[in-house]
Computed example of a mutant assay.
Amino acid sequence: MTIRETIRDATGEDAAAIAAIYNPYILDSTISFEEQAVTSEDMATRIAGVQDGGLPWLVLERDGIIAGYAYATKWRVRHAYRYSVETSVYLARGQGGRGGGTALYETLLARLRAAGCHLAIGGIAQPNPASVALHEKLGYQKVAHFSEVGFKFDRWIDVGYWELKLD
């Protein structure tokens, strides 16, 4: 049986499926530092904000079901940072290890290059060997490590930062 995969721009209609993918990362892991579940309306606002800012928010569909998403946000608000972005990718439970994260990130990075972005930055809560492996597979290099920068589930969490020059 052949699985049909498509990567496309997210729409507001995808917000519920995206929130359903993201909320377990909030509620059950330290991968996201958010602590409250996100509503579909909140997610629709986030998608629109990213896209209105000229950056991509992509979804991966497998046989018509959203299996993951990736997006980029501005790294910082100061104008001098305008060519740097932070990248993120999330897959639905059970969708890892099938190439979806790589496909999403490759498409995202190509779009960022085409848009004239210079630097992609990935912040990864530690430990997260799968995310580190994905970023390094795509050429990101570790450039920073902050110890005990986040506090969630009654414990301190480190965050590492990886960068990829896009041009």
Rank of each mutant, 00 (worst) to 15 (best):
G94I: 08
Y71C: 12
A120S: 13
R78D: 06
W57R: 06
W156S: 08
A110W: 06
K142W: 05
A17G: 00
A110S: 14
L119N: 15
Y69S: 08
I3V: 15
L108H: 08
S32A: 14
T39S: 15
N23I: 03
D28H: 14
L60C: 10
D63H: 13
M1N: 09
L119S: 04
A17Y: 04
R8P: 11
W162E: 13
T87R: 02
W156I: 09
L164M: 08
I65F: 06
F146C: 12
T6F: 05
V143G: 09
D167C: 05
T107H: 11
K152V: 06
S29Y: 05
A19W: 07
E13I: 00
A10L: 07
L27F: 02
D14K: 07
A67I: 01
I121T: 10
L112G: 03
Q36D: 14
E148L: 01
T107E: 15
E34P: 03
A133Y: 03
W162G: 10
F33H: 07
E61P: 08
R78H: 09
Y90N: 00
L164D: 04
Y105C: 12
R82H: 15
Q36K: 10
A15R: 01
R46A: 00
G53E: 13
T30E: 09
F153E: 12
T73I: 10
T73W: 00
E5L: 11
A110Q: 14
F153H: 07
S40E: 14
S88T: 15
G97P: 13
R155T: 14
P129I: 01
W156E: 11
R98H: 13
A19K: 09
S32T: 12
F33P: 02
Q51T: 11
D63R: 11
A20Y: 05
V89Y: 01
G150D: 10
A144Y: 07
L109H: 04
G64F: 03
E41G: 09
H145W: 15
T30M: 08
D63A: 12
Y105L: 11
Q126G: 03
A130I: 05
T73P: 06
E86W: 00
P24Y: 04
Y69N: 07
G53W: 02
E136K: 06
Q51K: 10
L58H: 07
L112V: 00
Y71T: 03
H118G: 09
G122E: 09
A48N: 08
D42Y: 03
I65T: 13
D42E: 15
A37D: 10
I7C: 04
A103I: 06
V50Q: 02
G49I: 01
V159G: 01
R113C: 08
A103P: 15
R113S: 08
V59I: 13
L104H: 05
I21P: 07
V38A: 00
I18K: 00
Y69G: 08
L104S: 05
D14V: 08
G54W: 05
S131K: 02
I21S: 06
T107I: 04
P24K: 12
V85H: 02
I3E: 14
G96Y: 01
T30R: 05
A15P: 02
I65H: 00
Y140T: 00
L138Q: 07
V143I: 14
G100Y: 03
L55P: 00
E86Y: 02
A125Q: 06
D154K: 14
I18L: 07
S147Q: 13
